[in-house]
Amino acid sequence: MADIKPVATRPLPDLTEEDTRSFWAATNTQRFVYQQCGSCGMVVFYPRQHCTGCTTGRLEERTSVGKGTIYTYSVVRQSYHPFFRTQVPYVVAWIDLDEGPRFLSNVIGVTSPDLSLIGKRVEITWEGHEGVSIPLFKLI
């Protein structure tokens, strides 16, 4: 018998990182949150403490409805990472959420990816882990 190797798992975010911990905390209730400035209206993403549009505004937390459009994608066919090497081929994509944030994630359940994926509508599907949920996407 071959050695029994520990099952490799998806790399998860550092839940203590100062700017992104509130984003990841919200995933436990399956909410995708982003920030918008109460003064100038700037949508800020990734999360920060300051508005990048003006110097005086306060950022307010908003929740996305979780739908968006594929801006661009690739299909990873080679990875040396212990988890991702078991997942190839898989789709990596920049998703433009309807509220503005552009987010890098995986689109799952795509059987034959081609250029027509760009512009396709997608929605969040949550992958649960201990202390965090990961927002993946599927075609609508």
Partner: peptide, 23 residues
């Protein structure tokens, strides 16, 4: 290869997705 989490807020948001340098 793989990439590490937590170095920068932006990296900490997409480390889960397995995007390689090539992708």
């Amino acid at each position: 290869g793989g990439r590490a989490a937590g170095r920068h807020p932006a990296d900490n948001l997409d480390v889960f997705a397995g995007s390689t340098l090539v992708s």
